[in-house]
Design a binder for these strands. Structure first.
Lengths: 344, 344
DNA sequence: ACTGGCACTCGCCGTCGGAGAGTGCCAGAG
DNA sequence: CTCTGGCACTCTCCGACGGCGAGTGCCAGT
């Protein structure tokens, strides 16, 4: 028996099943693809593949369906990432170029990804902890409040209102605010956020004892904005695509939707790939996802970022029965464009 | 025949159907509710209600189901808004009070609404056009770029990067930026955004001809941020609740999810109630919704805002077969709390 | 190692018939 | 005029039955 043909059979099964969403049998298989052999031979191969746990028969007398392991082998060894046509590339670029805003970039990206792949798309906002400080601004609001505005090199802007226990309307206070602002910038500008945060720890000491509380409050806000919980934001689109193949994961839509609402879960999915090299596209299939609601789902994801540093992840989520080559191509292409866009 | 009893029957039908999601027949009706009469009498009433188009029999020999008109009558005349228990009020307040941010307020609000009502919740960000300017800040970024930051009295912050056709690193430019900033504030602070926008139209003339282009660019950004399309933002949660009653609108989940993704559609839903008085809760039922994908859905919405001015809408969306009294109570209570929260 | 053939297994689907829920209508009582 | 009990009727739902077809596993033969 030829190892090679057996894998070709697996590949064909995956492809056909993805197309038709119906278990594929030996006969229809030899019709569509021309291996040089008969259906009976293919049947033998299929029996072996089943023994290896790569495919599975839902019922004694039905066609075969790939298992998670089967898909895994397929994406690892049997599929080539489909190249995008120049027209597609142009469409992607054109659509993203119109963005006026980081919010806008993220918004367009997630919609684009959803419509390219017909799956649920997920885009993570650039992580602050992996960005550098471009600017920090203090804006007095009313008499006892200050708005702290953090601007990252990725264009991400985070703002927070802080109450400070003193009035700000005299001359001296104005000078103080602007001194704090200046010191913040000297210390933080151009550095990574975590680094800035540590360097700033000694900042209060440079001011009069009476003023230190205010400075500390501001620094606390900055740290708070960097905390895991608050700093990670995630956006999604295309959830209606889940309903499109209602028959597919039959009543499993609910748990998937629930998982998607739990942003924490999503972040874990992307967290796994962590600081992976920018080029790579990661795929987690079915039960490889920790969350049990996602047992029937696969995630195709990658990272994007300005320069060679990745600052966040993006990807798509769909049924395990998913067109992996296309999804991987789209995810990779979009990530590349977004990275370019954040470059300058 | 007593008009009064007929309406009581309609009320009972709506209540039972909402509870069981099964067509309700005369027999089970007299069992659960005790009208003083027999099932036969109720049947006569039901026949009349059907003639009036308030209820409808899916099959010749099945129970009755309320029509859109039936629900309409129910919410208008037959239901009292369920008061919230003190414990619930406290829970709402406690959950919302922890917010650090407008984003956070909106986020918590939408999740809270979803979990209170078990429906899809929708919250609109405070409209800029209906807010007043609290502050405008100009932050130089790099050499030929400026970030314009708009802060509204609602806490909403909008930022936009503008390219200006001149370098900013000399002394004079710094003075110019700060002069522009000062003038902007004098003219705009405390006024409504549209008013500010018109008042600022003459601003360029106060500067040297060479500087006017920059000022114009900044003003254009401000106007752009106010444009319908960009200014309205909407957030939703609880979409998994749609799947919970999969049997309910059977395969109608897809169009609903699609409609929810089209934020434009959502904004229209809230646009209808427009500048309605803050107290009122609006309900649109089934086909009353313009969008055809939402023919099986109802929307319970209201407005919130600081002071007596409404600045945006919020609400829930679910199947027409929905617990209106509870939904209305939750929506009203949440809107009230959010309004309070935006007050100071 | 591959092929053709064959018996066998099951899920799918349409049919059928009984049970149950609900209805409409009618004649009689208050 | 309103309400009630009764009765015949209509449909849907559900489980049983059976034929069809796709697909399988295995075996004997090349």
């Amino acid at each position: 028996m030829s190892e090679e043909r057996r894998l070709a059979v697996l590949r064909a099964i995956v492809q056909d099943y993805v197309r038709t969403s119906e278990p594929v049998g030996s006969k229809s298989l030899v019709e569509r693809h021309h291996f040089g052999v008969s259906a009976a031979t293919v049947r033998n191969d299929m029996a072996l593949l089943e023994e290896e746990g790569l495919i599975h028969a839902p019922h004694t007398s039905a066609g075969r369906v790939p298992t998670d392991a089967g898909y895994r082998l397929f994406v690892d060894r049997l599929s080539a990432v489909k190249p995008m046509s120049p027209a597609e590339r142009e469409a992607i670029g054109g659509f993203l170029r119109g963005a006026v805003d980081l919010d806008d970039v993220v918004d367009r990206t997630v919609r684009l990804l959803a419509s390219l792949t017909h799956q649920v798309a997920v885009v993570q906002y650039p992580s602050l902890t992996r960005s550098t400080v471009r600017h920090i601004e203090l804006v007095p609001l009313g008499r006892e409040r200050l708005m702290v505005i953090l601007i990252a090199n990725t264009g991400r802007v985070e703002q927070r209102v802080v109450d400070i226990a003193r009035t700000l309307d005299d001359e001296r206070s104005a000078a103080l605010v602007s001194a704090v602002r200046r010191e913040l910038l000297v210390e933080a500008a151009g550095r990574s956020f975590p680094e800035a945060s540590t360097r700033l720890r000694s900042l209060p000491e440079r001011f009069e004892p009476a003023d230190r509380d205010m400075v500390r409050t501001i620094l606390r806000t900055l740290d708070d904005a960097l905390s895991e919980e608050r700093e990670e934001r995630v956006v999604l689109a295309g959830t209606s695509n889940l309903a499109r193949f209602g028959a597919d994961f039959p009543l499993t839509i609910a748990p998937v939707l629930e998982a998607l609402e739990e942003h924490v879960v999503l972040l874990k999915l992307f967290g796994q790939l962590g600081a992976g090299r920018v080029g790579g596209v990661a795929v987690t299939i079915g039960h490889e996802n920790q969350h049990e609601g996602l047992a029937g789902a696969s995630v195709v994801s990658t990272t994007y970022g300005s320069g060679s540093e990745s600052v966040a992840g993006l990807g798509v989520l769909g049924p395990t029965r998913m067109d992996y080559p296309t999804a991987m191509a789209s995810v990779r292409a979009v990530a590349r464009y977004v990275s370019e866009l954040l470059e300058p």
